[in-house]
Amino acid sequence: MLVDRLGRVPVAAGAAVALLGAGVTAAVAPADSLPVLVLALVLLGLGWNLGLVSGTALVVDSTTPAQRSRVQGNLDVLVALSGASAGVMSGVVVATTSYPALGLGSGLLVVCLVPVLLWWRLERPRTRSR
């Protein structure tokens, strides 16, 4: 409902903000502060879900009905593999550096989403008119 009401790109931007907040919160959380770590995980879940739903809606908007199921299936597999790989890599990052480094690194990765959203916002109206 949020994606339909607010739009795909604004919800994706909200996902980026929530994920950045999760990374920063995790990075600055004292190791013995359960409430702050829970907040970081809630922001992570919120950002993940906002991103997944808005991304799926963007894929639906960008594909023809004939392509949609194949593209969506491929993306679902890619998301699952990415999530599993990220889970393994997060353990490696924490083992070799620290939990705050994982949080800051994750937050920096989210910042990479901003140019993609800006590009989408600027390019999309032109491609619709073709």
Rank of each mutant, 00 (worst) to 15 (best):
C112Q: 08
A29I: 06
L81H: 04
G47Y: 02
L34H: 11
L109Y: 07
V24M: 13
T63G: 03
V71F: 02
V38H: 00
V111Y: 08
V53G: 07
V36Y: 01
T64R: 02
L37N: 15
T97I: 09
V110I: 13
V42L: 12
S82G: 15
P100H: 07
V88Q: 13
A57D: 11
G23Y: 06
G14L: 06
V71G: 04
V59K: 00
R121C: 00
W119K: 07
T97C: 11
E123H: 13
R128W: 07
M1P: 08
V110D: 06
T25E: 12
L122I: 11
L50I: 09
L113G: 04
L118G: 01
R121Y: 00
G7R: 03
A66M: 15
R121D: 00
A26L: 15
L39N: 04
G83F: 12
L6Y: 15
R130D: 12
R126G: 13
A95C: 05
V3I: 10
L43E: 06
R68Y: 02
S33V: 05
V3L: 03
M89L: 15
A13W: 01
V53W: 10
S85E: 09
L44S: 07
S82K: 10
G73Y: 13
W48N: 12
A66H: 08
V94M: 03
R68L: 06
N74H: 12
D32R: 11
G7N: 07
G73I: 11
V110Q: 08
N49F: 03
P125F: 13
L41F: 11
C112P: 03
C112N: 12
A12F: 02
A13M: 04
L122C: 08
W119I: 10
V114Y: 14
L19N: 00
G51Y: 09
S82A: 15
W120M: 13
A84I: 09
A12C: 02
S33T: 09
V11W: 02
G87Q: 08
G55M: 05
G51V: 03
Y99G: 01
A16V: 15
L78S: 13
V36D: 00
L50M: 15
L34D: 14
T63I: 09
V94P: 04
G103Y: 04
A27I: 08
G83W: 09
Y99Q: 10
L117T: 08
M89E: 00
A26N: 01
V59D: 01
A15C: 09
A86P: 01
V60A: 09
S62Q: 13
G55C: 05
L122P: 03
G45F: 10
A80G: 11
R8N: 02
G55F: 06
V38K: 01
A40E: 01
L43W: 05
V92Q: 12
D76R: 02
V114D: 00
S33Q: 14
L39C: 05
L78H: 10
S90W: 00
A26Y: 00
G51H: 03
V94H: 01
L102S: 06
A86G: 14
R68F: 08
S106W: 01
N74P: 00
G21V: 07
G45S: 07
L75I: 06
V42I: 14
Q67V: 02
A13E: 02
S54I: 07
V92H: 12
V53S: 07
A22I: 13
